[in-house]
């Protein structure tokens, strides 16, 4: 059973679709990896797998090895690149925890599908079987396994939980769930259901992330609350679960994912509560997005993203909460 070689298993859940589960999973993985842990990402969104695209590994295929499937590697363990300007910006805490980057690999149905446009029209029992196979046949030796889930509380979630609760020994290695929401009431009302799902199944909630909280206009640096604000924090307080943080919308992150462009910001850009830090970062890092950079690994480019310091905080809190369980 391949789950035996994984130290901590963390689920990323949300009742609502499109709140950024995959994007939060990606950034948690990058954040953990930048703190020196080996990380695996398992995408159980079978009808809409997006993890391959997030990690820029769309063309990759799963390889077979004796005893199971090999996940697709995103990057190997490496020492952190120190480039002139990045040296300073990287020094905000990551260096203290070691300048190594942990290996990152991922597994998704997208790596098995024949083409990216073909629909997966599966009924429940088939999805159940696929989820079980992902958990049992993928060979992983990891500090952290992040599991990205589809929206809702249905077959994939039931099968995932059933298998994990049965097979993970000791149970403390199943650390719990990170619940993602956007701030508006419609999303929160769906995500409350997800928190109840966790309660019913006895899954610990490691924390709530409020995603898409505010959008910083790239023209005037004015922050607009596109999907209102504070809903996630209020919900976390009501359900007495930890609140991990608020993540603004950053079009530069989308560009990083979609086009592989290293993020750069106009001077004085502020991102939710991190004004000073960001301003320094923006200035120090102020090199224009050079195209020669395109082939640099995602994890290196991500350190220039305004969301990196935000996620660094979230990852640190998450790690504390995970340690508290085990």
């Amino acid at each position: 059973m391949s789950l035996n070689n994984i130290q901590h298993i963390v689920l990323v859940l949300s009742g609502k679709g499109g709140v950024g589960k995959s994007s939060v999973t990606t950034q948690l993985a990058l954040g953990l990896s930048l703190q020196g842990h080996s990380v695996g990402v398992l995408d159980v969104d079978l009808t809409g797998p997006s993890i391959p695209r997030f990690f820029g590994a769309e063309g990759a295929r799963v390889r077979q090895a004796p005893g199971g499937w090999l996940p697709v590697p995103v990057h190997e363990a490496q020492t952190r690149e120190t480039r002139g300007g990045n040296n300073n910006s990287g020094g905000e805490g990551a260096d203290s925890s070691g300048a190594t980057i942990g290996a990152l690999s991922c597994m998704s149905l997208g790596f098995i599908l024949p083409s990216r446009g073909s629909a997966v029209v599966w009924r429940g029992p088939k999805k159940t079987a696929m989820v079980r196979q992902f958990l049992s046949d993928v060979l992983n030796t990891l500090d952290y396994l992040l599991i990205d889930t589809p929206p809702g509380t249905s077959d994939e979630h039931i099968s995932l939980l059933e298998t994990l609760l049965k097979d993970v020994q000791p149970p403390s290695r199943l650390s719990g769930a990170v619940v993602v929401t956007t701030p508006q009431a419609i999303a929160v009302s769906d995500v409350r259901k997800e928190l109840n799902f966790c309660a019913k199944t006895g899954l610990r909630v490691l924390g709530v992330v409020e995603n898409m909280a505010g959008f910083v206009c790239p023209h005037c640096s004015e922050c607009t609350n596109v999907f209102s604000k504070g809903g996630g924090q209020a919900m976390a307080a009501e359900f007495e679960v930890p609140f991990l943080g608020r993540v603004p919308i950053d079009p530069a992150f989308v560009r990083l994912i979609e086009e592989g462009v290293r993020p750069s910001y106009p001077e004085g850009t502020m991102v939710g509560g991190r004004e000073a830090e960001m301003r320094v970062k923006g200035n120090v890092d102020g090199e224009p997005s050079d195209t020669a950079d395109k082939n640099a690994p995602l994890v290196q480019k991500y350190t220039s993203c305004s969301l990196y310091p935000v996620f660094e905080g979230i990852v640190t809190t998450l790690k504390q909460n995970v340690e508290a369980v085990s």
Partner: peptide
């Protein structure tokens, strides 16, 4: 309204 509908297919 907060109850989760945990239903299979």
């Amino acid at each position: 309204r907060d109850d989760a509908v945990i239903w299979r297919g």
